[in-house]
């Protein structure tokens, strides 16, 4: 059954429409000419990925989204939170009970923290099960391990901040746990406490690590992580003929016979 497709009709653009398009394009062109940023973003968004990528491969972006939610909600919480032993608990109560929508933003940050950690682990599990840590992506796995460590430290330092009984004693136990490491453990725990005992300095120091040092480190590492993702391309799932680690006989010389570097997926190769 052959259906004759009508020839594409292209209406002539009205002058008004042309004017409108020019208005939108002008600033974009202006930016592109002076920075190349638009081309860069286009390259990032429309780069080639294997044709058989899988939904599991969205877990990394999900983790990134969770981190961005933590950043935004955290910055807003920081406008009302007071990091000292006298006021920390009071300010958390104030955020939760008095301020408009404070309960929601705090809830997003508190539950979002767990979501972020869980997503990080799921993403790592996907990478492991897909064998996506194999050559040439070992370095990105290592960057990921650092991200995991910094992410867990974010959770540990943030947990003290509400300064309630759970926060206080869980942090005591956590710090002392570090203190039992051989040789340097006692020095590590005393550094974390900011002294021989938990005191007014401890909460301020945790707050500083929680909202400045660790997020800064995480952002820098996320940048490196994504750079490597774009440079090396993403892997095909393990059931693909192009799965990570499989040799490709017909691979172009440039990829050195290794699979997983950017190229069209099976559908692309079969002319699909």
């Amino acid at each position: 059954m052959a259906v004759a497709t009508p020839p594409p009709t292209r209406k002539k653009k009205s002058a008004r429409r042309k004017q409108l398009e020019a208005m939108i394009l002008y600033p974009i062109d202006w930016l592109e000419e002076r920075s190349g940023l638009v081309g860069g973003i286009k390259y990032f968004l429309f780069r080639k990925v294997p044709g058989d990528t899988n939904w599991m491969q969205t877990l990394g972006s999900a983790t990134l989204t969770a981190f961005l939610v933590q950043t935004v909600t955290g910055v807003i919480l920081a406008m009302y939170y007071k990091p000292d032993p006298e006021n920390a608990y009071k300010s958390i109560q104030h955020i939760t009970n008095d301020l408009t929508l404070g309960w929601l933003v705090r809830g997003m940050h508190r539950w979002g923290a767990s979501v972020f950690i869980i997503l990080m682990f799921m993403h790592m599990g996907r990478v492991f099960l897909f064998g996506a840590y194999k050559y040439p992506r070992e370095l990105n796995w290592i960057v990921g391990v650092l991200l995991l460590a910094l992410g867990m430290l974010e959770g540990f330092t943030g947990y003290l901040l509400p300064w309630d009984q759970t926060a206080y004693w869980a942090t005591i136990v956590g710090i002392n746990l570090n203190g039992t490491a051989p040789i340097l453990g006692p020095f590590l725990s005393q550094f974390l406490r900011g002294g021989a005992e938990i005191g007014p300095d401890t909460i301020a120091r945790f707050y500083s690590l929680h909202m400045l040092l660790l997020p800064g480190g995480i952002m820098a590492l996320i940048g490196l992580h994504l750079y490597l993702v774009v440079r090396l391309g993403v892997t095909s799932p393990p059931w693909s003929p192009d799965a990570a680690g499989s040799e490709r006989v017909d691979a172009p010389a440039a990829t050195n016979g290794r699979s997983g570097l950017v190229r069209p997926g099976p559908r692309g190769r079969n002319g699909g």
Binding site: N176, G179, T180, I183, G185, P186, Q190, A196
Partner: peptide, 23 residues
């Protein structure tokens, strides 16, 4: 004075040869 979890006697105390000043 040793931190919680640090052995002070027996062979495990060798894991903690120096302690930071506690005051």
């Amino acid at each position: 004075l040793a931190g919680p979890g640090e052995h002070v006697d027996g062979i495990e105390s060798w894991l903690y040869p120096v302690d930071p000043p506690h005051g």
